[in-house]
């Protein structure tokens, strides 16, 4: 019996080959006649003004941080969700429901806090 993750590894290799063949084919077959204006950044036909890598809106990094917070809490919910029915069968259902109710309540309080602080408003 093979390792259960062996097919996943093979699929990643297969997907990589599939994508790699396309990359290789287009770089081999296509013509290469780069001119200066062809190789300049695209700005609707105008001469590019400044660099693209300037300062960004802080909103984006705020979203990323909020994502990490809430996504980790999602991950914490998964084990409970899988075992919830088993707990109900073994009579621990109410206890687990209250426990998770407290967890969800804290999560909701966090969401309300972020909401009230206007971190979710996109100007």
């Amino acid at each position: 019996m093979h390792h259960p993750y062996l097919p996943v590894l093979l699929i990643i290799v297969l997907g990589g080959l599939f994508a790699g063949v396309f990359l290789l084919a287009s770089s081999l077959i296509g013509p290469k006649k780069g001119t200066k204006s062809k190789l300049s950044p695209y700005e609707c036909g105008l001469k590019p003004v400044g660099n693209a890598r300037e300062r960004l809106d802080v909103k984006f990094s705020l979203v990323a941080m909020l994502f990490i917070l809430f996504d980790i809490e999602t991950v914490f919910l998964f084990p409970w969700a899988v075992l919830y029915r088993d707990f109900i069968k073994s009579g621990l259902g109410l206890f687990m429901a209250i426990e998770m109710g407290i967890f969800l309540f804290i999560l909701a309080v966090g969401l309300v806090y972020v909401w009230r602080k206007k971190a979710l408003d996109w100007r």
Partner: peptide, 25 residues
């Protein structure tokens, strides 16, 4: 496939090639 594969001069070449590779894989 037979069109010119333009890699503009200002790009970060390794990541520029890696991005479509990762997406499709």
């Amino acid at each position: 496939i037979t069109k010119e594969d333009i890699i503009p001069s200002q790009v970060n070449k390794p990541f520029f090639i890696l991005a479509p590779f990762i997406t499709l894989t």
